[in-house]
Design a protein around this nucleic acid. Structure first.
Length: 419
RNA sequence: GGGGGAGUGUCCCGAGCGGCAAAGGGGGCGGACUGUAAAUCCGCUGGCUAUGCCUUCGUAGGUUCGAGUCCUACCUCCCCCA
């Protein structure tokens, strides 16, 4: 997509070099602005969840690189659009969120951004905006008159996202159709308020971004630009940021640093280089070296990936600790006191707790039934001893340093600690 | 408005003569093999105080010893005609 264009700006050369660039509306034009040091850009984020997960990490890194290369990042919260509900969930299962929840979610998300961006009042400082500020008070008639007339339905119908739906005879509600209008309006509004001329996003946002650029032109803003990142999947095609246990949250209260570290450590061989470029800030030549490691040596690269990626979210100390915990656990098969833990009352241990209940309590099994099945399959271990009797009890004699180590499979370990 | 079809295991797709906790996939989890990878092979994939009990096939009723299966009404979606 980038052709042979050689960007002059630090921003675009970083993006192209690291594999962030999928499409851009005008590379040369954008490059010029980026080089001038006046680039203000935004990315929109949903605030339907209390935090962000690894699926948004590419977007977050885009903003981070923007700031590091002299630009001003804007994180736009979809507080206004969240009030309408998510249109893409076609079964009405997605509820409208109460305003307080949206507010709380915004706070959580902001704390994630704070780890990646420096916020403030300065020229290059990141800011957070909420489109509820302008969308919530929007008057329908005014909107139609001032903005609505600039949207070409013909054009919108020709966009892939819409066209596909029509061709497949899938329902496309008016509400959903309007999302791109609102998003386009956001872009224009941010341009007016903050001189923001670039919207970035995942490649699935391309149509919406272009609609915004178009609206800007019709409404007489400066020339706007759009840029998308590739939609990330793992080598085997799975969506980034989701595992069976749930999303890979970027918040230590929702996902312990150790598990975050593990997520990256367990990436597929073929993803290692790509991920190093996208999710760490190691120099490219260093990455090239790591990427070239063959066979089992690639594991060294994965550990570096895991530690670097974790350091960015949870701090270097926590990252090193996670690395050390993993080393003890997996390489030495030694007890590691910093594994994720769950507390249990002393009295319960005194009396003896059934293995089934213990694994459920530790969150390693969803139900006693599942725990039972795992035992049958040889998947559960207590202090590294495979459990064979589902009626076994865990008592004081199983404690080492006030904790029992419960394991599910090779990789998932939880310490049950006496409170 | 008229005619026809469909909604199944709370991840998805999808079979299902009145005996059904319900075939088969995919996905996921566990085991073996490895390198905490991939591929491959094997097992598991409603809940519980468990030789039994409870809840599941769009919703609510009905027939029946017994209903995912038959009947009625309703809801939702799709197709054809107007």
């Amino acid at each position: 997509m980038t052709g042979d264009f050689r960007p002059q700006s630090d921003f675009l050369s970083t993006l192209t070099g690291r594999g962030f660039l999928h499409q851009c509306s005008d590379l040369a034009g954008l490059d010029k602005i980026a080089k001038s040091g006046e680039l203000v850009a935004y990315i929109g984020f949903d605030c339907t969840a209390p935090s962000l997960h690894a699926g948004s990490l590419v977007q977050i890194m885009l903003l981070r690189w923007l700031q590091k290369t002299g630009g001003k990042p804007i994180a736009l919260m979809g507080g206004g659009t969240s009030r309408v509900g998510d249109p893409s969930g076609k079964d009405a299962s997605r509820q409208l969120l109460p305003l307080e929840t949206i507010a709380a979610n915004k706070e959580g998300i902001k704390s994630v951004f704070a780890k990646f961006l420096s916020f403030g009042e300065g020229k290059q400082d990141a800011i957070m905006q909420d489109n509820a500020d302008w969308l919530a008070s929007l008057n329908y008639i005014d909107f139609l008159r001032d903005t609505g007339r600039h949207f070409s339905v013909n054009r919108m119908l020709s966009m892939d996202s819409v066209k596909l739906r029509l061709e497949r005879d899938q329902e496309l509600s008016f509400l959903e159709f309007n999302y791109m209008c609102l998003q386009a309006y956001d872009f224009v509004e941010l341009c007016k308020r903050h001189n923001c001329v670039l919207q970035m996003g995942g490649s699935d946002q391309w149509g919406n971004i272009v609609t915004g650029i178009d609206l800007g032109r019709r409404m007489g803003t400066r020339q706007l630009y759009g840029l998308t990142s590739p939609l990330l999947t793992t080598g085997s095609g799975a969506k980034m940021g989701k595992t069976a246990q749930g999303a890979v949250w970027l918040d230590n209260s929702m996902l312990p640093p150790f598990e975050y570290w593990q997520y990256w450590r367990n990436c597929e061989d073929g993803d290692t280089g790509r991920f190093l470029k996208l999710f760490t800030e190691l120099p490219l030549d260093e990455i090239a070296r790591l990427e070239a490691l063959g066979g089992a040596e690639i594991n060294e690269a994965k550990k570096i990936l895991a530690t670097e990626a974790t350091a960015m979210v949870h701090g270097r100390e926590a990252a090193l600790q996670a690395a050390e915990t993993a080393r003890k656990t997996f390489e030495e098969n030694a007890p590691a006191e910093n594994l994720p833990s769950v507390e249990i009352e002393a009295a319960a241990i005194e009396a003896g707790i059934g293995v089934l209940a213990a694994f459920v309590k530790a969150g390693l099994a969803a139900s006693t039934g599942e725990a039972r099945r795992q035992i049958k399959g040889g998947g559960l271990r207590v202090n590294d001893q495979t459990v064979t009797d589902e009626r076994a009890l865990i008592g004081p004699h199983d404690l080492t340093g006030g904790a029992v180590k419960l394991s599910l499979g090779r990789k998932r370990h939880v310490l049950l600690k006496v409170a």
